[in-house]
Design a protein around this nucleic acid. Sequence first.
DNA 1: TTAATTACTGACCGACGGGTCATTAAGTGC
DNA 2: GCACTTAATGACCCGTCGGTCAGTAATTAA
Lengths: 221, 221
Amino acid sequence: MSVQQAGSRGEGVQRQRRKAARPSELSAAALALFVEKGFAATRLDEIAARAGVSKGTLYLYFDSKEALFEAAIRDGILPLVEAVEAQAERLAGDPERILREILNRWWAGVVATDLGGIPKLMLAEAASFPAVARFFYENVVERGRRLIRAALECGVQSGQFRPLDMEIATSLFFVPVLHVATCGQSLAFSDACVHEPRAFLENHLEIYLRGIRAEKKGCSR
Amino acid sequence: MSVQQAGSRGEGVQRQRRKAARPSELSAAALALFVEKGFAATRLDEIAARAGVSKGTLYLYFDSKEALFEAAIRDGILPLVEAVEAQAERLAGDPERILREILNRWWAGVVATDLGGIPKLMLAEAASFPAVARFFYENVVERGRRLIRAALECGVQSGQFRPLDMEIATSLFFVPVLHVATCGQSLAFSDACVHEPRAFLENHLEIYLRGIRAEKKGCSR
DNA sequence: TTAATTACTGACCGACGGGTCATTAAGTGC
DNA sequence: GCACTTAATGACCCGTCGGTCAGTAATTAA
């Protein structure tokens, strides 16, 4: 099932020359396996097999296993981050709505696809690949947090939300969102929430918003 | 710094026979390294060196690298789970207080020690070690959730909390708590919240409790 | 058709690391 | 001091896997 999806029918294993498409195919195959088994436990032969090429071909496009790892993370997550940012820009003004939309986007783009494994992967491998960790932090975590923080600040400004420690409040919104992606990928926690990730995120938003809204006037204590 | 903390002064590297103490020393050393570098990337020689023994000694006490992994998780986390359960039993009755205490215990026993790495480790390796993942899920995740769920049910019963989806509400309390431990260990997210883990947990509790408390009577909408 | 180019292959290499076991030496009883 | 038991050692074995490169076949140009 995992071996040679391209060019293996019959006996004469037919080669294909597809220079343009290869890099993204290879990084996609690599990402899937890294997510599934971790960096160290993933063999280059497996990656090659899944992409329907030989191991040697990997080295035509990437210098090393580590370079492939970087590319896999990069190609996997950046498009999504950009999509979320674009969406948020369109909604500037209504903080609760922005938060809700970030959730929806994240749901559609990460949790429901195999991209959910990336945060888990980063968590696991960050210590061994500081450069990649830095890239991920700056281009995903930071940018995501910026969107959330902006929405919260807007809400506090307008009086909808009570005064908050911005950094922490940002994290507290962020964390369950991250968790859905991460844990959806891991037996050790999977049952812990994620049979209903949709409902999980809804409930999170509900509790979180109630938790940060300003008290109603006239209602003492 | 990591080599031979026992018996290496001078030239004649002096052996020690300490059958009783070895297993826990070895599993502790193993845990620290697994947490730091992941299972596959950790060498048995390193583990042995950190524990101040030779590689061969590992095999006197454990059948394989994997058996050592199991033991490390087991020995590392079980004592803590038991401590938290004992504490919760003593406080039955006051749900908000129980939740607060779970947080404090977790803080003291996990986040502030190197045990924080265990959840991260499990997250990363669960797919490769289903048996260990199962053990962890049943003995840590499940038992932790049981405590939280009990407190929440008690609060809903008494009318302090509004009606909740119990499974999800439990997760939503659990997740940031888990996160503090997990992310404190990983460059990829570290700054995301954890320069002030104390404050982070406080804020979580605050927002969460506000989010689930029943509406004050007489306050419409 | 033939020559030139280049994407692709896969057998091979070297090191690395999990696991073994003959040997050593620390402890024990007499 | 001597014989005996057993905890501990570390050189060694061997399978595995990242990485290489001489060769092959698809494509293009002449």
